[in-house]
Design a binder for these strands. Structure first.
Lengths: 155, 155
DNA sequence: GGCAGATAGTTAGCTAAGAACAACTAACTA
DNA sequence: TAGTTAGTTGTTCTTAGCTAACTATCTGCC
């Protein structure tokens, strides 16, 4: 099933540990005033796939629909996203990012990346390159379904 | 303060998103039966710095002492760690990993890495190399203090 | 045409992880 | 002896998810 195990288990453990510690650090560093990580992730997903229905969004984020509702509620209340009626199906709404939402995403990304930018800026050029080279791979791992089979239409 | 900004803000945002999504995926994939991420992180830290006092461990993990106590309680109850009296200071205890603890860490790392291993095994050799090359950089980012100044003695 | 079952969105209530602060005891230190 | 430090307990909070149950709508079929 798997290829030759070029990556030993010890390195996988290191990767797991680094990711979870990095995440904790990001959580601790983020002010409690703006969007949570679940909200940012959902927002980015909406931006990438808009207009998208709630169930599809929930499926892509791999959470149950009620969880997605809770995640989106503050975004909707603050006008970062909008729900338009689906002409094909009056039960569902098509979710989009508003102009205000796009501005907010851009602003928050800048703010949040400040600290990380400073620390990455102090890495050597080689280390920065290694990070950038691995970025698409990390994104691939982060996106891909743990289940394996296709989760739904590509949209 | 920072070097030339070789890494643009957009990539930082991608990195942040990838890390948080990866973390969520790992959380979802882990069975609820064994150690949590905070526990694994603390355990790895103890392993690396044993014998270590609770306050120092808490400082290294960047949490308050009560949080660390709560994290360690099940580990102590299950005999994964041991506390020896500090001959220098009868208030404090020196925390170490027991043999049972070491076995458990090894076993859990193997189990948890199973899924990740399969998915990484399906990456191309170039992608695997990129990941491995970035691993030390990720660890550096994960370890380094967000504050900047030295947090305490090296051991 | 009309009904049975499936599906979209939602609300209510619950759980777990992870962390915080306040306050306490015991021990150390100046 | 007074103040500080190490460990601990009680209590609370936030984030992020879940299931169950409900309404409204859609769809397939007889």
């Amino acid at each position: 099933m798997a290829n030759d195990p070029t990556v030993p288990a010890a390195d996988l453990a290191r990767l797991r540990l680094a990711v979870s510690r990095l995440h904790r650090q990001m959580v601790q560093a983020s002010s409690r005033l703006d969007l949570t990580f679940a909200q940012l992730s959902a927002l980015a997903r909406i931006e990438a796939h808009a207009p998208i229905r709630l169930v599809d969004l929930a499926a892509r984020e791999r959470v149950a629909p009620p969880s997605m509702i809770r995640t989106l509620a503050p975004l909707h209340a603050d006008g970062l996203i909008a729900k338009e009626p689906d002409p094909q199906d009056r039960r569902s709404a098509l979710i989009t990012v508003t102009a205000h939402g796009r501005e907010t995403i851009a602003r928050i990304r800048l703010e949040r990346s400040q600290l990380l930018a400073e620390r990455i800026g102090q890495l050597t050029a080689e280390q920065q390159d290694a990070l950038l080279a691995a970025l698409p791979v990390l994104e691939l791992l982060a996106e891909e379904p743990p289940g394996g089979s296709a989760p739904g239409p590509v949209n």
